[in-house]
């Protein structure tokens, strides 16, 4: 009897050793698998400073009169590829640029505010915002800017997916829901000497669908110091 229980104790000890070392192996495998299936984040570590290019040359103020940014959907990618931003020259009559003041913008979802940078350029009227709707992520042309004089939503950015409306002359603050966040503001810099525009960073809410503005996409080709301004025409 005594013999037997000693034997079974040893038996259990050996079993425990099998379990421990196999457990260690399983732990190692699990660590490998779990870390492996979480994809490494793709993106940048800081906001790049990019010159806005238009048709292969640095964008001039004269390229974007109010009638142009109001009559077309004018976009550029920032900070990553496939992060579209609206470029707008704000005006109340689609002719005369209207300066946009820096102001603090209210976020309905959190009750907080943040500082929106205001317009740049000779008339302090050029602004840029993320062009991805903060409600559920619809992109242009479904969301776009309705120039002054439009039948519906004049001077507003409106999203046809579910009807969110933003006011780009007041930091793209929320005019009507269902969105609860303003459009993130893209910060521009105007160089009066060379007459060129640079895009330098973003502020406000995070771009829709991303953990951070800088990750979750493919960076522009390495070493590229510009981002192209593209246009599509407004239909309907």
């Amino acid at each position: 009897m005594g013999e037997e229980s000693i034997d079974s104790g040893k038996r259990n000890f050996l079993k425990a050793m099998v379990v421990i070392s196999a457990g260690a192996a399983v732990a190692g495998v699990l660590k490998g698998v779990v870390q492996n299936i979480i994809p490494p984040s793709s993106g940048l570590s800081s906001f790049p400073e990019l010159t806005l290019f238009f048709n292969g040359n640095p964008l001039k103020y004269s390229d974007i009169p109010p009638s142009f940014t109001g009559g077309n959907i004018v976009l550029f990618d920032y900070p990553l590829q496939s992060d579209p931003n609206f470029l707008l020259n704000i005006s109340n009559d689609n002719k005369t640029p209207a300066p946009v003041e820096p102001m603090s913008v209210f976020i309905p979802a959190t009750g907080g505010t943040y500082e929106s940078p205001g317009g740049v350029g000779p008339d302090n009227s050029v602004v840029a915002f993320s062009a991805i709707c903060q409600h559920l992520g619809c992109v242009p042309p479904i969301i776009h800017y309705y120039a002054a004089g439009s039948a519906a939503f004049p001077t507003y950015i409106h999203c046809n997916c579910h009807g969110s409306t933003y006011d780009p002359s007041r930091g793209a603050k929320v005019i009507t829901g269902p969105t609860t966040h303003p459009l993130p503001a893209t910060i521009l810099k105007y160089d009066a000497v060379t007459g060129t525009f640079k895009v330098v960073s973003m502020t406000g809410p995070t771009i829709y669908g991303k953990i951070s503005d800088l990750t979750g996409g493919t960076p522009l080709p390495e070493g590229q110091t510009y981002t192209d301004v593209t246009t599509e025409s407004i239909q309907g």
Binding site: K10, L14, A16, M17, I20, S21, A25, A27, G28
Partner: peptide
């Protein structure tokens, strides 16, 4: 059985040490 117990103990400790090291 005794030899098996001793060897397995050494191996078991070794396995735990290795996993601690490589983790």
């Amino acid at each position: 059985v005794n030899t098996a117990v001793i060897i397995s103990a050494i191996l078991g400790i070794f396995a735990v040490a290795v996993i601690a090291m490589i983790s």
